[in-house]
Simulated assay, not measured.
Amino acid sequence: MTAFQIGDQVRLKSGGPVMTVSGTVTTQGTYQCRWFDTSHAAASFAEYFHPDTLHKFEEPDADAIRKKIGLTGTN
């Protein structure tokens, strides 16, 4: 079972929005996560998820992506 900290950014393994862990493990072994949906006037949602359904979200390395596609900043 993966352990997450409050403030970690996570996403469901099946996809979906990036969420923030906002609560510790409950007695059922789940984490409370919050996310925003801008299509609903930036509404905030919260739900509990089992840690086996989540993975930590890592921001992509923008500089590595630019280099890979040939955008070196010297246009």
Rank of each mutant, 00 (worst) to 15 (best):
R66L: 12
A62Y: 13
T24G: 15
A42L: 11
A42V: 04
L54V: 01
V18Q: 06
A46S: 12
Q9E: 04
T53A: 10
H50C: 03
Y48I: 01
I69V: 15
K67F: 05
H55I: 03
C33M: 03
I6T: 10
N75F: 06
G7D: 00
V21A: 02
H50Y: 12
Q5M: 11
C33N: 07
I65W: 12
K67S: 11
L71G: 00
M19A: 12
R34V: 03
P51H: 02
N75W: 04
L71A: 12
V25W: 01
V25P: 07
R11M: 14
R11V: 15
F49Q: 10
T74E: 14
K56W: 01
F49C: 13
D61L: 03
S44D: 06
Y31E: 05
T26A: 07
D61F: 05
R66Y: 08
D52C: 04
T30A: 12
G29I: 12
F36H: 09
C33V: 15
A3I: 14
A43I: 04
H55S: 10
I6S: 03
Q28F: 08
F45P: 00
T20D: 06
E47Q: 09
F36Y: 09
T20F: 02
A46P: 00
T2V: 12
D8A: 05
F49Y: 15
R66H: 10
I65Y: 13
G15M: 11
N75R: 11
F49N: 03
D63G: 04
F57W: 15
R34D: 15
A41P: 00
T53V: 08
N75C: 04
G16S: 11
T53N: 08
